[in-house]
Simulated scan of single mutants.
Amino acid sequence: MERCLRLLLLLLGSGLGSAFYLPGLAPVSFCEEQKVKDNCKSQIELLVNRLDSAESVLPYEYDAFDFCKDENERHPSENLGQVLFGERIASSPYKFTFNKNETCQKVCQKTYDPKSGVSALDFIKKGIQLNYQHHWIIDNMPVTWCYYFEDGQKYCSPGFPVGCTITADGRVKDACVINSEFNKKDTIYLFNHVDIIITYHSGKDENWDGARLVAARLEPKSYKHTGDKAIKCEGPPMEIPKDLTSKFQITYSYSVIFQENDTIKWASRWDYILESMQHTNIQWFSIMNSLVIVLFLSGMVAMIMLRTLHKDIARYNQIDSSEDAQEEFGWKLVHGDIFRPPMKGMLLSVFLGQGTQIFIMTFITLCKFYSFSYPLCFRFSHTV
């Protein structure tokens, strides 16, 4: 029996070990295409994650939007942290070769017509208006978008926006401030191009073969590409029409540059992200304040309960006659509330038995979840 238990624990441990791993503990080495080895690969895969927004509580998977998708889409095994955060990671058509710079490469082209493409394009426009953010991953590391504030302070975000908008009164919203070309009133712009910069440690004087990636940054841009084959990443930004009256095309592209930097160690490749995000500092005062309040309130509740129970127990011990013993008081009166029959109990039992309550809750939850896509359902759920 003991041997069977040991074997079962060993199998469970090996299964969990293959499914989960702690972030940052599985380094991957990369080599140039002509120097590929068993422990050193040349292909770099970019993974896409769910999109979210600070202006909306509803996250969406990458496939919910009509972006470029991988023909052989797969969902890689997520580590423990990604599972706990509810991330939805999938493969993408963005694939690079290590140390091979590429300029203005076409990824895919999306075509929308007034008959069948209105809903997909409107969904992208709604996502831009709510400032939804892409979250991309390279080598288990977020692809960051770094920009500067007015005071010269640098900030790196682990996501970049789908697009930006200019209001009817000429107010520049969200990421439209990064480019002066975004200046047309009442216009929605789409970021259909990204300039990706991948920084790597060459591995010189280290005990591993090949190079390791230490940083991945990008800069979203908007270009109105012309032509189906040869494209040029220049010209006016990509505008999304307010009303789709004719055939409309969106071409997605990218450029990638590799940079060598041996001063950044692989073990500290996350430092530049943490240092630039000031709001991620641990607020020890808030933590201690919350802890003191919880302990204080818990102590008050415990003291009140102990005093009440102590009085009731002392009163029970002083009972002499059987008449007093039959009379219940104090905390024993709780059973009167617990076993009190509800009003119209038969109707309640019928509803619960048929699952009516669960059905109504599920319907309202689904309506709220899809309210972003279906405004009529959204209004109905709020009316309910």
Rank of each mutant, 00 (worst) to 15 (best):
W331E: 09
D243I: 11
L11G: 04
H134M: 08
V107W: 01
L348C: 08
R50E: 13
N72K: 14
F258N: 04
T199C: 04
K247W: 01
V57S: 13
D186P: 04
Q283K: 14
I338M: 09
V301W: 12
G152A: 03
D70G: 03
T97Y: 01
V194M: 00
S381I: 07
M141A: 06
V28F: 08
H310M: 11
V162P: 01
N49C: 09
P158F: 11
D151E: 11
G17E: 01
R307S: 12
D151M: 07
S42Q: 04
Y200M: 02
C233R: 04
V214K: 06
F123Q: 07
F160C: 10
V301Q: 14
S222N: 06
L306K: 10
F98H: 01
G117W: 05
E45G: 01
N131C: 05
D243L: 07
V36K: 13
D139F: 03
I264F: 00
F285S: 14
F285T: 12
L8S: 05
G163M: 02
R50A: 06
R171P: 03
M238W: 01
F149S: 13
N79S: 09
K242N: 09
F363G: 08
C156R: 03
G152C: 05
T362E: 07
V28D: 03
R6S: 02
I44T: 07
I89V: 12
F380C: 13
V28A: 09
D169S: 14
E328R: 05
M141K: 05
S53A: 12
L51H: 05
I287D: 05
L366I: 10
V177F: 15
E55Y: 03
N140K: 13
N49Q: 06
Q133V: 05
Q318F: 02
H382K: 13
D320V: 13
E45F: 00
N289C: 13
F98R: 02
N49R: 05
C40M: 10
Y148K: 15
Y316W: 06
E33N: 08
D205T: 07
K41I: 14
N317Y: 04
L130A: 12
E78M: 15
G355A: 08
L190W: 03
Y155E: 15
K154R: 14
S14T: 05
T199L: 02
L306D: 10
G355Q: 04
D312H: 02
A90G: 10
L8R: 00
G17D: 04
A325K: 12
Y21W: 15
Y62K: 01
Y60M: 13
F359L: 15
V48R: 03
I128C: 02
I196A: 06
K184V: 00
V292E: 09
D63F: 06
P342L: 08
I338V: 11
D38P: 09
I257H: 14
L22Y: 07
G227N: 06
P76R: 07
S255E: 11
P237W: 02
W266S: 08
L297F: 10
C146A: 11
M238P: 02
L12C: 12
I250D: 04
Q43M: 13
Y272R: 08
L121E: 01
Y254A: 00
E150W: 07
E61S: 10
L80E: 04
V118S: 07
